[in-house]
């Protein structure tokens, strides 16, 4: 079984500050960590490897400084690490990123066929949750998002069964391999890195791929050029000027309390009153129209 886990190195949001003037993230001095959601993907992949054997390749696109994140992943027990890095990749949005990752996975697949790709549900810095599905679409992989549990993998039937958290319940889904899974937070707990794995991680060679090595076919699809997303404005929402009000009412008299509350709302928010009046008028009109039909 060959499993690829896509991870991203992100600034530790617990220690991040926003520049008061430019509203951009001040990354200086903020430690970089593996995107916390990706840890669930790594653990899910390692647990499958423990169960079925095979290898786990951890993959990231990023600047050369992202290498420690890959070594960290190796120290948990991942077998190989690939850093896809190229000056041309800078400024990539989710479309361009998924293109690069998909190309790299295709390249990995040529060497050892890839059965499963894991990603976190989203990153804590971008929060888009688009890269995983983007990769799946480009590689025509079956896509399972928000997965909370891997139920079973049937290698003979080449299929996987998972649980997916959905509104109002849990879906049990089964699909064929190869597939891409985005893992939900809280679905597992990342293991402790062992001392031998830490030594191995420190000595291991991280494959560093530029655009050629990663098998990028169309350089117009990478980096800023390949990114149609435009950030038009970044701003901090201004806090509301109004303060909350306390409305006194008599609990023994709910009707009067409702009346007081409604009056208050209608005075404070004229829009609501207008809408209510409108609805009432419409109802009247339709009623009188109905009356006419009779």
């Amino acid at each position: 079984m060959h499993i690829v886990v896509c991870i991203k190195q992100v600034p530790d949001s617990a220690q991040i500050r926003v520049h008061p003037v430019t509203n951009t993230i001040m990354r200086q001095g903020v430690p970089a960590i593996i995107n916390p959601y990706d840890l669930f993907a790594i653990e899910a992949a390692l647990a499958l490897k423990d169960q079925l054997g095979g290898k786990v390749t951890v993959l990231t696109m990023g600047p050369p400084q992202a290498e420690p994140a890959l070594r960290k992943a190796l120290s948990y027990g991942c077998d190989e690490a690939v850093l896809v890095t190229d000056k041309l990749f800078a400024g990539a949005d989710t479309l361009a990123t998924s293109y690069v990752l998909a190309s790299a996975i295709k390249t990995l697949h040529q060497e050892t066929p890839v059965d499963l790709v894991f990603t976190g549900k989203q990153t804590i810095d971008g929060d888009t949750a688009q890269v995983g599905p983007g990769v799946a679409k480009r590689l025509e992989l079956e896509l399972l998002t928000y997965v909370s549990r891997i139920v079973s993998v049937d290698q003979a039937a080449n299929s996987i069964r998972v649980e997916r958290r959905a509104e109002g319940g849990v879906q049990v889904l089964e699909t064929r391999l190869p597939a891409l899974i985005t893992m939900l937070e809280g679905s597992n707990e990342i293991r402790f890195g062992s001392a031998p794995d830490m030594f191995r991680a420190a000595r291991a060679e991280v494959c560093v791929w530029d655009r050629n090595a990663a098998g990028i076919e169309d350089i117009k699809k990478v980096g800023l050029k390949g990114s149609p997303t435009i950030v038009s404005r970044v701003f901090v929402p201004s806090p509301r000027a109004q303060k909350a009000q306390q409305i006194e009412f008599d609990a023994a008299n709910p009707e009067a309390a409702t009346q007081t509350l409604l009056d208050k709302v209608l005075v404070e928010i004229p829009k609501v009153k207008k809408q209510l009046d409108q609805t009432r008028d419409n109802k009247r009109a339709s009623r009188s129209a109905g009356e006419r039909h009779e």
Partner: peptide, 8 residues
């Protein structure tokens, strides 16, 4: 490596 070991 020392940092990684201390952290784990």
């Amino acid at each position: 490596l020392s940092d990684a070991i201390l952290e784990e």
